[in-house]
Nucleic acid binder design. Structure first.
Lengths: 214, 214, 214, 214
DNA sequence: GATGAATGAGGGTTCATTCAT
DNA sequence: CATGAATGAACCCTCATTCAT
């Protein structure tokens, strides 16, 4: 009985572990290839080659190309949202400035580590591409929404706690979200930016809370 | 004799006027279709259909798909930069806050009127797509650079004129540029934003200069 | 009356002379372009450009592309056949060896002066291309047939006059015709041939009549 | 264990055998279609249809249309040159007349069996088409050169062995090569030729060595 | 479950031909 | 008649997807 139940349980476990390892390898390959060649330029053959499997194998794990992309976006979105939630919980007691700074640092750090994903995500978020990916459509926009929701909650608590002036409250969240791209812009456009130090969450929060005016 | 020479001159004029009108119609159609379907999803047949011409006509005006896209980006970039320069010259004497507000309003207004173009431009600016479009590559990144240059000049004058604190001076430009997307984010993410009033340049400048802190 | 009839006659004459000049220019341009780019690679636009007229004008003179090609082949075939007939008549009294040599020299000379045409003609003569050019089909094969006929007549008189052995009589004509390409082959293949002197009709006739054997 | 490793080896073998069979079918289809419709008139869809495969399959075996044509010419050129070399080696001891006759018979036989290829080859050899097919260009002219080289070697040995008069030695090779087309010309032009017996290598050699003169 | 050759719809592009000026 | 932009059928090629092994 032991033998049988062991083997009966163990084999599926082994198999499912192999399955998951393959799926993870595929997702990682997909992240690279999508980032390298763009949302439309990434080819299933390339993804398979980079993952070290044949094309057919991709279809054993994901229904089609869109499902693979959606799976990738899901996976990464889950990771970053998880980290955000963890930090929000940890810093629940801190003052507003520190909570905002820490949350921004979390996002900056994640995106710095997963720059390919960030690039993909921005393209996928484009309103006009959503139409092209009905399968992914359900999930793709959610990361933006989810991040927005978390930031908005923080902003509201900031207004309640008198850390933020209430007049412009409804624009704060969108404003902070738009600033997440600041380092990308700095790198691309600023002559100093290419090699220089990235803008820090502290600097960002400083301007956001205190203003840039003299 | 006059009559004949007149007609001899008139025909080329008429033809070239028609040519230009067709080219403009093609560009406008391309703007719509590229925005609707994305940089890769836009098909030459669709562009032709929307412009009311046959596919072949597109190729009488633009060497290939990339040249059409590049032509479109060039055209629109020229327009928005021209308006920016005009406003910058007009407001040369105004104080910093007004100059910044007016410049932002100019951009907001242009992008509101050419939302499709803005969408295309953001996609084209993506680092990963530039590699895919070598033809467009030469011009595409320039709009960002040009806008950045003009904003930076304004920021420097703001610092010199004591309107801006000098400590974070090197991040102001990138920060303002990143904020240009704020209304797009608000529309997409905010529950209020979809139908609500857009964020105004005044609001943006208020937060930027005075801060959101209480 | 004089005036009227003069102008009535003169204008058509002038016009028809212009027409013919244009048609000749088109044919000459076509000869160059067909030879430069091949039977299928020659484009109507290129032919028009080289002739110094617009595409539409080509269609005022020739029904379509095939008719233009057929017209070109007709024209040149008429010229070379005319020269052959003239030489045949002139040399009617000479002995066989001289008549053959002179006829070959006529062809060699014409083809040396119209090498593009010769190239075109060979392509057009290909059995498999005839199917593609039903319009030209009637005329294209005729040059080969006409030349063959004239040579065959000469061969028969040679046999009758005991200048040729009668045993292989039925192969002589085809053999001589196949030899017309000898200089083209020599140029292309022989290391000496590229710049060296062309093979002369005399040499050819020498081998044909006397053999290469020791 | 043996069984398993056997099957592990067998699968690739089976696949590669199928691959080669498909490639051969494609080449054969291409030979027909190129010959039937000409170098430019042959369409990839037609080739696929005749080979019994989809268009895409053609591109799994050949990079593009030019590579397919080049592959075809390579393949056939290799075959005919191989046969020529075999015959040359076998007949090394025979006298000149027999060696020449046998070599010609080899070529006549091969070309009779691969008439489509012969047609293609002549078109491809055309100076003006070589420019259009840079991919094929490298190999295309080689068949002519290779055949020329082999014939020239034979001719030189004929001169050395006193079988050929030395005076016209430098034209013999080109002359023999030009004669290879004799049967094609006979079929097309001679009223007797269409159905009649082909000219034999013996007849050809007879005229070449002994002359047609009485 | 993994493999990778075959598939074929669909996209970008060309170019002979037309016709309003 | 000359012009040359517009036309659109037809071509080459790509690549997501399938399925026999």
């Amino acid at each position: 009985m032991n033998d049988r139940s062991d083997s009966g349980v163990a084999i599926p476990n082994l198999r499912s572990r192999i399955r998951e390892a393959t799926a993870a390898a595929i997702l990682e390959a997909a992240e690279q290839v999508f980032a390298d060649h763009g949302l439309h330029g990434a080819h299933m053959n390339d993804i398979g080659a980079r993952a070290g499997v044949a094309v057919g194998t991709l279809y054993n794990h994901f229904k089609d190309r869109d499902a693979l992309l959606a799976g990738l976006l899901d996976q990464r979105a889950g990771e970053v949202l998880g980290e955000m939630d963890r930090v929000i919980a940890e810093e629940a007691r801190a003052d507003f400035r520190e909570r905002l700074t820490t949350l921004l640092r979390t996002m900056f750090t994640y995106f710095a580590a997963h720059r390919p994903f960030f690039t993909i995500f921005q393209q996928a978020e484009s309103a006009d591409l959503r139409a092209l990916y009905p399968v992914a459509g359900k999930k793709v926009p959610e990361l933006g929404l989810e991040v927005y929701g978390r930031l908005e909650k923080l902003m509201k608590s900031g207004v309640r706690g008198k850390a933020l002036r209430p007049e412009g409250a409804e624009l704060y969240t969108a404003l902070i979200m738009s600033m997440l791209r600041v380092n990308k812009i700095r790198e691309r456009c600023s002559s100093a930016g290419a090699g220089g130090p990235a803008i820090t969450p502290e600097q960002l929060v400083r301007v956001f809370l205190d203003g840039a005016g003299a």
